[in-house]
Every structure is written in C-alpha cells, then in structure tokens.
Nucleic acid binder design. Structure first.
Lengths: 193, 193
DNA sequence: GGTGCCATGTAACGCGTTACATGATTAT
DNA sequence: ATAATCATGTAACGCGTTACATGGCACC
C-alpha cells in the first residue's frame, strides 16, 4: 500500500507525470539502494488511482521532448490521503515464514529444528552486518532519515535473534512437547483401499 | 513463499489432496485465528507446484464421496524443499510503510510528523494489547508453539514502539534538518510555458 | 554514430485476497 | 427438509517483480 499513497501524496503536492513520480518516489525513500521501485509499478498504480477517481489525467504536455501525461489529485483522493495519515500501520506478523518452516520441519520429523534455527541465526547475523556497514557509510548531514530507517531494520533483526534464543531455550526445557500434528480425518465410510 | 513450501513439506510427508492440505496447513500454523489460508490459494499454489514438476498428480480417489486428486512429491520437489530448510529467511524491512508515510508527510509540509507518530503509537499499543490478550488465552500444554509465535509478534511491536521513541528524540534534537526533497529536474531545453 | 537519458508503457508471472459456483454425502 | 462438511475449483482484483518494446533528444 505504500507506493499507492506515496504517489497520491506526491501528486497532492503538485500535479505530476509518471516518470517524474518514479524519480520523486526514489528520491523520497532514499534511492535505489533502499527501495528500487520499478517504473512498471508506478504506471500500473497510477492507472488504478485514475480508475478509482483519486487522481485525474489533467493534461498532456509536450515541450520538445516526449509527451507527459500529467495527473492531479481529486477531492476523493485528498480524503483518501488524509485517512491514510490518520490511521496506523499494522503488518500481519502472524504470517511468519520461519515459524512455518519450524512447524513443517517438526511435522516431517527428519528435519532438525536446531539446524533450522542455526541456519536462520547465521543469515540474520550476516544481514545485520550488511545493514550496519551500509548504515556506517551514510552521511548523517544529508540523510538522517535513511539512518533511522536502517536503525529500524537493525532493531527488527535483533528482535529476530532474541526470539531464536528464546525458542532454543524452550527446546531445552521441553525436549518432547506434543506439537499440533495435522491428522487426516476419516470420513464416515472408511476408504476400501 | 511460506504456503508454497508448507504444501511441499506436507506432501513430502505423505501424498495428499487439496482439501486435506488446507486442513493440514491450518492445523499446522495454529488455526484460522493465526492464519486463515483460503482454499483458493491452496489450489492455485498446488497447480503451480504441479506445473513446475515439484509435485505430480498421482491418482484420483473416489471412496463414496467426491473425487480426490492426490499429489505426491517428486525428486525435484524434495531438492527444493531441502534447499528451503538450508536457507535463511530475510524479509525486506526497507519497504517500510510508516517510513514512507513520514517522508510523504514531511514532503507535503502541512502534515505533522509528530501526529503521524502519535497515531502510530496508539495503533501499536492497541495491537500489543490485542495480541497479549490472545496470548493469555492459549493453553500452553497444547499450543506452546503458538505462544512463541505471539511472543515474536510482541517483540516486533515493542521494537516498533522503541523506534518511534527514537525518531521523536531525533526530531527534538534537530528541529529543521534538511530532508531529501524531490526536485523535478529541468530538461536541456526549458519548457516554454 | 552510439550511449544514455527522457518518457511512455505492455506482458506475464507469483503471492495473496474476496467472492462465487457446483455437487455429493452425513447428521439433525 | 436443511444445514454442515467434504471436495473441487473459477474469476477477478491488488501489489509487486522481471523482462521487453518504442521513440525522441542531447552529448561526446
């Protein structure tokens, strides 16, 4: 949902065309190292916004170069944008891939949960190092915001690492805790095979 | 990617059909309160797995009830599954909606960053309360894993709250830090308008 | 004359969602 | 009778990705 509202905001600031929005979004979030949004997404999102009447194609300019289809925000678009600002962001933390991997590993039996956790820890530390290095190379004068974003990433990676410790501690506690096993239910009439 | 590999794992355990996979996945991750996967996703994912030759439609059973299209894993599927177990999970933390919202708010000028943070904090505390309550209601005997999953969610929510504190502290420090403004670039020949 | 930037897209796919449709059996 | 469960999907959309296509203009 971020791109949609970011475009809406940038168009609210001033009427713009697709190419310009791509450049503006990239500049806004911190360049292609942070978020390399693809032109295809800009144009398709723009088309969706136009179809929902949140923006309208205002005019087509052509100053020597190629055509520019310029979009402006509508009252409905402004309402939508302000609703975004006045609502909180909550991601679905419960759709967690590592958790699923552990559950599948346990269900299979042959795959060791410890090993999954070890592999994950290594990946997280590597990522932590990568992000920390990246963070160190940013100039705080010009890009304070990027540093804050990377700090958020670091905090989440650290939380992931602490969670792994926690799971390992639990595994030590209960060596053979019964876990939810999917049992294929029998139907009324049992299969003849 | 979670569903894809979970299905692969469940089929590796034993050949299964779509309906059974839906039930097994739901049981595995902790029921519809945790992850309410839709049948439509099961069947479409299954079709994709079959098309990539990671599973094959083994047989069609019909014991009194409706037809059951049973899928089994292939050697390629097992290889893919083990590759999943041996690799780490890293989400793209950099595509952060709150960060985008703050940047757009600052670019617009009229929207206050403080207010965005305050709204977000409220939403996070509400969610924290919701999850904590949910956690309290789980029986640790039968669903230890679900508790661990909710703990992970709590840890991430707490990290988000700490980050907000951090951003607010920074805002106090530098009241008017220049932030990356998207400047529409002029072309070689300036517009005549 | 080629490289690169400006500016527009289209096509196809993956993951995920909601809503709809069909038909049989089982339990009340 | 009818409601729930078993079992299969299809259709359409949103967000995001990669890859491909077109054409003009500016710079070296």
């Amino acid at each position: 949902m971020s791109v949609r509202y970011a475009l809406l905001g940038l168009i609210a600031q001033q009427p713009r065309h697709g190419y310009e929005l791509h450049a503006a979004f990239t500049a806004l979030v911190g360049g292609q190292h942070i978020w390399d949004v693809k032109p295809a997404q800009i144009y398709s999102t723009l088309a969706r916004l136009a179809e929902s009447r949140l923006v309208i194609e205002e005019s087509v300019e052509k100053d020597g170069g190629p055509e520019k289809r310029i979009y402006a925000i509508t009252p409905a678009g402004e309402a939508d944008l302000h609703a975004w600002f006045n609502s909180g962001v909550l991601d679905a933390h419960l759709h967690d891939e590592l958790y699923v991997k552990l559950m599948v590993g346990l269900a299979l039996g042959e795959v060791d949960a410890r090993k999954i956790l070890q592999v994950q820890r290594t990946a997280l530390y590597r990522e932590l190092h990568r992000v920390t290095t990246q963070r160190q190379m940013i100039d705080p004068k010009t890009a304070l915001a990027h540093i804050l974003l990377l700090d958020k990433t670091v905090m989440h990676l650290e939380a992931d690492l602490r969670w792994i410790e926690m799971v390992e501690a639990r595994l030590d506690e209960v060596q053979r805790q019964p876990l939810p096993q999917p049992e294929p239910k029998q139907r009324g009439r049992p299969p003849k095979k």
